[in-house]
Amino acid sequence: MGGLSQYVAKLTCLALLTVVTMIFLGKQLHYEAYSTHVNYSLDAPPTSHLIGRLPTTSLSAFNVLGYGNTSLMTRMDTPREEFEFIIHPRNNSCNDGAFGKRALWSMIVCVKSNIKNAKRRNIIRRTWGAQKLLQAVRLVVIFVVGKDDRMNRTEIDKEQKRYGDLLQIGIKETYTNVGWKVLAGMQWVQTNCQSDWFYSSADDDMMPDLRKVYGEIQNQMDGDHFENTPIICQNSLRSNEGPIRDKRYRNSVPYEHYSKDSYPSFCTGGFYSMPASMSNAIYQVSRYHNYFYNDDVWVTALLRLSAVDAGLVWCINVTDQFCAIAKFNGGSVQHAFCNEKIMSDKLSNVYPPPYKPK
């Protein structure tokens, strides 16, 4: 019996060693593919972009579960042109070293905001957006806006001169153009921020508890491999939801565009976080797909799986539709549902001026 026990113990140790080796090699292969296709290191902004066709992994969830076969997610042979910005954030906020030495890590939040919503932007600036260093985390907030020809240009110029935190792109302010703002923010972050930052996307009527936001990010961080942290749905995670087919609704999706009955799991677009290296990869992959106005689904579900399929985002099980997204059902952020008074009152209670962290 003693000999048999020793034999079983040796087999168990050998099996564990094999699994650890496979995981290590998988990560090494992923890093090689990452640097080959994206051509930048983890300690510097990217200097070049994907050229030509995207690579593909036949056994990924993107292909096995059929998401890549839908008309919506058919890949283009050449990438879409990049955005041209009308207004840039002043002084390249990501390179501001004022808090760098005191911060354990840094996060930039790209807030999708209608150009008319100056009041909401001001509420954010004086509450959670003013927490430049909290719990040893450095925070930078920029507002991504479109254009409205009916609005006086002087107003937006004055706002930018005072705060210097606007990123404006030349698209009209419409419901179906919101997704372009997400990609524009990702493009700016890719060019201006280090890839070891954290990236978050937010609506301008969200009320985050930054302590909880930072706490959940730190819970999900992958130790020595910061860039492998999954997407975190700070507001809520949705699963087994399908497209609306009724054409009477503005967010209906024709069957010929997306033929599947459900979407992969996705974050509601109010507030979600991911490593900047992942947002860089998702942005690059997005340039090979036709635009889909539902940025919640497009970015955190379909483009996420497409980036995994292309080998640009690491995942231990590429066949899993939860690959690279955390099974965390939010709660760090509340929705004000466009009610600016509620938003102002609640946020002012959490972040009273002058705010002093507990």
Rank of each mutant, 00 (worst) to 15 (best):
S60R: 04
S60Q: 06
A61M: 02
A61R: 06
F62V: 03
F62A: 06
F62I: 03
V64P: 04
L65T: 09
L65G: 02
G66S: 07
G66R: 03
G66D: 06
Y67D: 09
G68K: 02
S71W: 00
L72E: 03
M73N: 11
T74C: 02
M76V: 02
M76R: 14
M76P: 01
M76Q: 14
D77A: 14
D77L: 12
T78L: 13
T78R: 13
T78P: 00
P79G: 04
P79W: 10
P79N: 09
P79H: 10
P79S: 11
R80E: 14
R80A: 15
F83N: 05
E84W: 01
F85C: 09
I86L: 14
I86W: 06
I87Q: 09
H88C: 04
H88T: 12
P89Q: 07
R90Y: 11
R90E: 12
N91R: 14
N91F: 11
N91E: 13
N92R: 13
N92D: 13
N92Y: 04
N92T: 10
S93H: 10
C94Q: 03
C94R: 02
C94K: 03
C94P: 05
N95W: 03
G97N: 14
G97I: 00
A98I: 08
A98C: 00
F99D: 12
F99L: 08
F99S: 09
G100D: 12
G100H: 10
G100W: 01
G100V: 00
K101P: 04
K101A: 15
A103S: 15
L104M: 10
L104S: 15
S106Y: 04
S106M: 12
M107C: 09
I108E: 05
V109L: 05
V109S: 09
V109K: 03
C110K: 02
C110G: 13
C110Q: 05
C110T: 15
K112C: 09
K112I: 08
S113P: 02
S113Y: 02
S113V: 06
N114D: 14
N114G: 15
I115L: 12
I115W: 03
I115M: 07
K116A: 12
N117G: 01
N117S: 14
N117C: 05
A118V: 05
K119S: 14
K119N: 12
R120T: 01
R120W: 08
R120H: 13
R120S: 08
N122S: 14
N122R: 11
I123F: 08
I123A: 10
R125D: 08
R126V: 12
T127W: 06
T127C: 08
W128Y: 13
G129I: 04
G129C: 08
G129H: 05
G129K: 04
G129R: 05
A130R: 10
A130W: 01
Q131M: 11
Q131P: 01
Q131I: 00
Q131V: 00
Q131A: 12
Q131D: 02
K132S: 13
K132P: 03
L133T: 00
L133D: 06
L133F: 11
L134V: 11
L134K: 11
L134G: 09
Q135W: 00
Q135P: 00
A136D: 15
R138C: 07
R138G: 09
L139H: 05
V140Y: 02
V140W: 01
V140D: 13
V141T: 15
V141N: 07
I142G: 01
I142P: 04
V144A: 06
V144N: 02
V144E: 04
V145H: 09
G146K: 08
K147N: 11
K147W: 00
K147E: 10
